[in-house]
Amino acid sequence: MTRPGGSRTLWRRIVGVAAVVVLAGASSACSTRASEWDDSRYEIASGGANGVYFAYGSELAAELSETLDVRIDAAETAGSVDNLLRVGSGEALVGFAQGDAAADAVAGEGAFDEPLAVQAVARLYDEYLHVVVRADSEIDDLTDLAGKTVSLGAENSGVHVIAGRVLDAADVDIASISDPELDLGESIMALEGSEIDGFFWVGGIPTPGIADLAETTPVRLLSIEQTWVNTVNARYSDAYRPSDFPVGLYGLAQPEPTMAVPNYLVTSAATPDDVVRDILAGLFASRTDIAQDVPAAALLDRRQAIFTGPVELHPGAVEYYRSQRD
């Protein structure tokens, strides 16, 4: 697999500048950033524009840019696999990634031809598998998707990874499904126009795009049976757990069983420790403000953030969490 990346990779920019104090006298009076930052443009790999990743990444980029007096932007991407590739190549400073995709990345399995040198910054919140159909659809069960036109997620997305694993656990022949490989925004538009029978999505709740869709086009979420969750865990990285969509979410009249997977913020192993500590300080300091627009941000918990196995915490993250215990 070819990894995306520009000619100036991030690790070269930050590691190369570590030997020189670029910021002496250049930072604003209110900035508390570490000396390893330079004046380059930094990127948060943040997913599709209609998902929680992009909303969270945009808010975090704005907060860090102001606090650290650096230029940090949220980049629209295909999702977890794409984000991990960007972080691993140095194109992005940090990125959001599902725990299962991150486990594959460090092991060099699944969508990754070889292990990526990525490490975790924090466990942020859990994401939920959505299998969305129109409310008036005749599709009642995951097994009814065979022979239908269903988006299993964009190429290089964590959605695509989970969709394949769950369908396999449910004994649905994936080859029988016509998959246009749409991102969330494209999937929403296609379902609205009855161009597809349904779509898969994995994200925090509520996912803004799906919440907006439910306001104009009544939808249903298909159940994910616990036996399927158990099968997926047994076959892969044991990263999943049974969960439920609550009543009222997307107009649901009753809870709907699904499965959840943790979401991590990841960075390159080459990122300087001080930079990671700066990011974490900003992440926790701004979580209340970010949560006003991105409810999932309120779920960030310092006691739970360290549980990122099998992805190792970055040494800078370890230092940060230890310092908070003092």
Rank of each mutant, 00 (worst) to 15 (best):
S27D: 04
D173M: 06
Y320N: 03
V318L: 08
S27Y: 01
S237M: 11
D179I: 13
G99W: 01
T9R: 15
R241K: 14
S137V: 14
A101L: 10
K148Y: 00
L10R: 13
S223Q: 07
S27V: 05
S157E: 00
E181L: 10
T231C: 03
A135E: 13
P115L: 00
S65D: 10
V20S: 09
W228E: 14
A170Q: 13
L213Q: 01
W11V: 07
K148F: 13
P242N: 13
L167P: 05
R13D: 11
D144E: 14
T2F: 12
P246W: 08
V229C: 15
P255E: 09
G5S: 14
D168C: 02
T258M: 07
L167K: 05
F199G: 00
I290Y: 08
R13H: 06
Y56H: 09
V159E: 03
I306T: 11
M259F: 11
I290R: 08
D100S: 02
S40F: 13
L124D: 08
G251A: 06
A74Q: 09
L85M: 14
V202E: 02
S40W: 07
A92Q: 12
R123Q: 06
L64W: 11
E36W: 01
R302M: 05
G108H: 11
W228D: 10
S89P: 09
G5R: 12
L93G: 01
W201T: 06
A146M: 12
R86M: 10
G251V: 06
Y125I: 09
F54I: 07
D301Y: 04
Y250P: 12
A117I: 08
L116S: 01
G6W: 05
S194G: 01
H160P: 07
E91P: 09
F200I: 11
G316C: 02
L299G: 05
G209D: 04
V52S: 06
